[in-house]
Nucleic acid binder design. Structure first.
Length: 204
DNA sequence: GCCACGATAGTG
DNA sequence: ACTATCGTGGCG
């Protein structure tokens, strides 16, 4: 069995915590997609969306039909459509009844179809939330999916973690939330400095 | 009902 | 800077 042959979903207790802590610790974790579109990729960029007080969060208007899932139990997937054409995927955080989510913005492709590719450049880039969902085949059909079950999508700890992941975590304001007043400048975007798969220009 | 506006990304 | 393209939610 290969070193990555025993990937298991992170337990619900991982998600049932402070959203910022979950966001930081998701960096370096593995996104595992099984089935026809099987792939493994490393999460390199995320954004934390806090509860109702966060004016950039979909939860800011309370548990509306779309955002209600953010108030639900942790460890589930929240997928929505932005600008009428791109999907964005989030993991739900905090305890049941408390809103919180982490937007997955970029991942580094590691393997496709169970095979480690010769060059990661041969794989579609996964930089940016829309591209990430497109690359993994995530649509609203996956909204509400339980990431803590061993299904077609889950997050796993890397059994062979690079030694320098956590020291490389940097933070910045979130992308595309200029309307959010004081919340627009809060440094709630986290990424691995220097990783070429991080979206946008300021990778350092 | 109706309508303004995005947690985007590619092109000019 | 401009645009494709549509669900969400605010408002009446």
């Amino acid at each position: 069995m290969s070193p990555r042959g025993a990937l298991a979903p992170l337990p619900r207790s991982f998600y049932a915590r402070d959203t910022v802590d979950v966001a930081r610790e998701l960096l370096g974790k593995l996104l595992v997609r099984s089935g026809p579109q099987a792939s493994v990729s490393r999460i390199v960029e995320v954004e934390a969306y806090l509860g109702e007080r966060d004016q950039a969060s979909h939860a800011r208007r309370g548990p509306t039909p779309r955002a209600a899932i953010m108030f639900g139990p942790p460890g589930h997937l929240y997928v929505y459509l932005v600008y009428g054409m791109h999907h964005c995927m989030n993991v739900i955080t905090e305890g049941d009844g408390v809103a919180g989510a982490v937007l997955l913005r970029a991942a580094e492709p590691l393997a496709v179809g169970g095979q480690v590719p010769r060059a990661t450049a041969s794989i579609r880039p996964l930089a940016g939330p829309g591209k990430l969902c497109a690359g993994l085949g995530i649509t609203r059909a996956q909204n509400g999916l339980d990431l803590c079950a061993a299904g077609t999508l889950f997050v796993a700890a890397d059994p062979l973690p690079p030694p320098d992941v956590m020291p490389r975590v940097k933070r910045s304001p979130r992308i595309g939330v200029a309307y959010a007043g004081a919340w627009a400048s809060r440094k709630l975007r986290f990424y691995l400095a220097g990783n070429p798969h991080v979206s946008g220009k300021p990778r350092e």
